[in-house]
Design a protein around this nucleic acid. Structure first.
Lengths: 335, 335
DNA sequence: CTGAAAGCGCTAACAA
DNA sequence: TTGTTAGCGCTTTCAG
């Protein structure tokens, strides 16, 4: 196994160079020679050693993908979009998870740099001290997917979530809701910040009083939605609507409401975020802000590729349009 | 950026070799020398070039992971288990999706071999012609995750799904069901084969008549469950229970039942497979065969690692125990 | 304890 | 059209 150019050269009588050029279909090799070498290569099961090639060319055709948790359906979809597009362009992805830990994020970047990836696609956490500086010092291109980092906004491929989060909140307010709970995401994530800000701003702009204890920070997990809403109900606080940072939280919340005999959407309306694949198939199809996840992954890779191929090109922020899909967890919805 | 050993050597006055050995904390380097070199390295932002290292050592500390669709929550969980464990052992994963296409599977293997991965973790499709031969000819170790391939059973890390699928079907039969629909998975996947066989065998062993048109092959997607059950209902075929190849199909089926005003579990009982994270939080928490997905990924990586470190070790099939979780979509369930 | 030299497998510049 | 040579950055003998 693992025949090398050297062996092909020995077996064919040509030099290593000629074999290499033949295999890469260079124009200055005699077609007949190519043919001979080609057949020999496939007979011997030759596989080009990309490690050696990369060392020589300085290109690995591999990018690093750093996500918080690739099993989260949102990230999973984005990553699929990335992988599909990358493969199409002859790139492969090295995947790492950080569980939103800044330390692991740093470490992941370092390791991926060591592996000489051609670029980085990351969903980073907001950090206190100098993480941006670290990124800024990178010599390879990088794109931030679905999030932003202060000072690096131009590196983002992101959706218009602030606008849509506000629209969702305004929907509630206009419908007369005054006790809207916001199940927020982790504060170290830019999307949490944006969605929460939009939630607040919608209240402020409409002069709607907002009780601070209606904003509940979570890690964005399924169980969080369930537990937080369960305990909210137990505390007998009045809830008339729930705006969730993501569909997982919304799903947990719906379950908690159901267990407590609270009718959705009559007594409580619910809007989630991300529009996961299963959301429209739930018993009560979930109203949600629909983010084009695969497209986001696709665009992120293409943006990265642009910068890999043209390192001097300036970065520009890319904003994808999302839209609210009103389904059965809201009173007003499409049929 | 990208300081090399050479530059560190020049800057420190030591030879390349000494710098290399110091950085790798070899015992035969003067501690003070080490210290000097270390600080210099971090000042210059030295990052070890793993491509060069791999070329020299013949190890990449990277494994290839080939899945059908990493956005499918089942695979996503397994992959997370793989990635977490791999990282723990200093390995990284190169992820590729095949969408159950044999051609893409072959191509993926070839590319990953070219990238010199130290091993392969795959969820392969059953193939007609000689795919096993291809795998058998590989010079690197490989483990088949959650599936099997004829003749390569020893390479599998898998769950006892045949047994549990039979148990689930028997549950239905014992409860008096005679019109049990099986929403099957794609026939090119071993788990579909096993679960369907178990479904049949349970009927045969209990002398329960089984109508062929109650077995419906699907691609295992959410929409398939919804559409197949919808059209089943439209055709006015009597259904009293549904055994789904996976939870996604079950979820789609539940939605179809709900839209048609069919009560679960009173009129139709449903059991899914995989026990996805969200299944217990559904409006009707879903009864399902619970596969330890992360553990499976974990074990698969460890098995692979064993063979990477000890290439001569014989392969042995590893079977993980799964269990049926009876929830609200079955009449009998835990509280 | 440190250094010199070889070479992993490949591609690219240059010669023939 | 083909071959020679050098070298990517690292680790690994082997000498000193």
């Amino acid at each position: 196994m693992a025949a090398s150019l050297k062996q092909l050269a020995a077996a064919s009588g040509y030099s290593i160079n000629t074999v290499s050029r033949a295999l890469r279909d260079k124009s200055d090799v005699n077609p007949k020679t190519k043919e001979k070498i080609r057949t020999l290569a496939s007979e011997l099961g030759y596989v080009n050693n990309n490690v050696a090639k990369s060392l020589r060319t300085g290109k690995t055709n591999t990018i690093g993908v750093i996500s918080a948790d690739s099993s989260n359906p949102f990230f999973a979809e984005v990553i699929l979009g990335i992988e599909n597009t990358a493969r199409q362009f002859g790139y492969h992805i090295l995947l790492t998870n950080t569980e939103e830990s800044p330390e692991r994020e740093r470490e992941a970047i370092k390791i991926l740099l060591g592996k000489q990836v051609d670029g980085l696609l990351l969903m980073p956490v907001l950090q206190q001290y100098g993480s941006c500086d670290y990124l800024k010092s990178l010599s390879i291109p990088y794109i931030i997917v679905g999030r932003w980092l202060p000072g690096l906004e131009d590196h983002s491929v992101i959706s218009d979530e602030y606008e849509k989060a506000k629209e969702a909140t305004l929907y509630f307010i206009k419908n007369g809701h005054r006790d809207i709970v916001h199940l927020a995401g982790p504060s170290c994530v830019s999307s949490s910040v944006d969605r929460m800000a939009a939630f607040r701003d919608a209240h402020i702009e409409t002069n709607t009083p907002l009780k601070e204890d209606m904003i509940i920070e979570t890690k964005g997990h399924l169980e969080d939605g369930y537990h937080e809403v369960s305990s909210l109900i137990r505390s007998e606080k009045h809830i008339s609507a729930i705006f969730a940072f993501n569909d997982l939280l919304a799903l947990g919340a719906l379950r908690a409401l159901k267990e407590n005999g609270i009718k959705v959407p009559k007594e409580v309306e619910v809007i989630g975020f991300d529009d996961l694949n299963f959301s429209k198939y739930l018993y009560l199809s979930l109203s949600s802000v629909s983010i084009p996840k695969k497209t986001m992954g696709n665009m992120a890779f293409r943006a990265l590729l642009d910068h890999i191929e043209n390192p001097k090109a300036p970065y520009t922020k890319k904003v994808l349009e999302s839209r609210i899909v009103y389904r059965e967890t809201t009173l007003v919805h499409e049929p």
